[in-house]
Design a protein around this nucleic acid. Structure first.
Length: 350
DNA sequence: AAGGCGGGGGA
DNA sequence: TCCCCAGCCTT
């Protein structure tokens, strides 16, 4: 029995029932694949259901505002995925007459669609022979063949890509791609896989040499940086002053309170003494609300403090990305987790 | 080739 | 704590 036959056989009895497996609609598959990038199935599933409900086809999606799409995406992270999807949907309308592509090379033209996603959509929607290579596949191949080359090195990517392509079942590319990813997610798990019930055990190089916990190898990234955010809650006539973040940096285009960032911890008095603060709020005095909140991202630790600020008529002209919103309308804005959880806590705590 | 980009869950 | 998750884009 070949490698692919065993994977497929395992899949027949362990396949997860997932909604995006019920369709060949490339648009729906695209939605699921973008949502699932670097995201667990359990975390992405409710978002997928909401997006399909809200935007049944690519035309609906393209006609929505970016703000509405980001709001639906709120809490899922990696927000460039949502912004790229909006661009991609417009490109599908303009370049493909609204007919969502299923060919690998066409798919690669869409912003946010790389090698993995193009292989997934083309094989699932049109049975095109392109092997997927995601975290699951890297792990399965690394262990089964005992490959020590780091999966995130240039050489590693080449080796695994070629191997994945050789192993692809060209009679059933879509089914095989689904199968090997489910196998990685459920059987050949990252931590403590139960090898005793694995159908590939007798030929698995990692099992033979007891290296399941060492493979796959991966080059380590840099350490996280610390950042200190100071947010100012400014309310006036039932309205709240909000600021939209720029295109650069984390949380691009999302809403938050006006803020100042510092390189190290500062207390309320030190904040007030900053020329930047006085330029914005003159002699107003920030009053701390609650404790510091540590918000951990994969590449940075953000220490956030919230202050209440009594200022009248902040000169909005100074900051074009500042605007007042009625507090009952804050819910309509796309906000990052730090802000949405603060608002939930502060405005709606009972 | 390396770094940036979220948030959550498991060990 | 650290690692990983149906990765992609920019420099």
């Amino acid at each position: 029995m070949s490698f692919s036959d065993r994977i497929l056989a395992w899949y027949q009895s362990h396949k997860r029932p997932l909604p995006w497996r019920e369709t060949k609609n490339p648009y729906v598959i695209w939605l699921s694949e973008i949502i699932l990038q670097q995201t667990r199935v359990e975390q992405g599933l409710p978002y997928f259901l909401r997006f399909v409900e809200e935007f049944p086809n690519v035309t609906n999606f393209a006609r929505a505002s970016e703000g509405r799409i980001l709001r639906l995406w709120q809490g899922l992270g990696y927000y460039s995925r949502a912004r790229n999807m909006h661009k991609a949907s417009k490109l599908v309308l303009e370049e493909f007459s609204g007919d969502f592509p299923t060919q690998f090379q066409d798919l690669l033209r869409l912003p946010g669609v790389g090698e993995y996603t193009a292989a997934a959509i083309s094989s699932f929607a049109a049975n095109q022979p392109h092997a997927v290579l995601d975290g699951n596949v890297f792990r399965v191949l690394s262990r089964y063949f005992g490959i020590e080359e780091p999966i995130n090195s240039t050489a590693g990517k080449k080796i695994f890509s070629q191997l994945a392509d050789e192993l692809l079942d060209r009679q059933h590319p879509g089914e095989y791609n689904q199968a090997i990813m489910d196998f990685g997610a459920l059987q050949c798990k990252p931590k403590s896989p139960d090898c005793s019930v694995c159908p590939l055990l007798i030929d698995c190089e990692a099992y033979k040499t007891n290296r399941q916990d060492e493979l796959p190898k991966k080059l380590k990234g840099k350490k996280s940086k610390d950042r200190y955010f100071h947010y100012f809650l400014i309310e006036q006539d039932g309205q709240v002053l909000m600021s939209q973040r720029g295109e650069e940096d984390v949380w691009a285009n999302l809403y938050e309170f006006p803020m100042i960032e510092s390189a190290a911890h500062m207390d309320a008095q030190e904040i007030q003494d900053l020329p930047e603060f006085q330029g914005l709020f003159k002699d107003a005095a920030p009053v701390l609300i609650g404790d510091v909140r540590k918000h951990v991202l994969s590449h940075q630790n953000i220490y956030a403090r919230f202050y209440k600020l009594d200022v009248e008529n902040v000169e909005l002209a100074k900051k074009s990305h500042w605007n007042y919103f009625l507090s009952e309308n804050l819910d309509k804005l796309a906000k990052h987790k730090l802000i949405s959880s603060f608002i939930e806590h502060y405005f709606f705590a009972n």
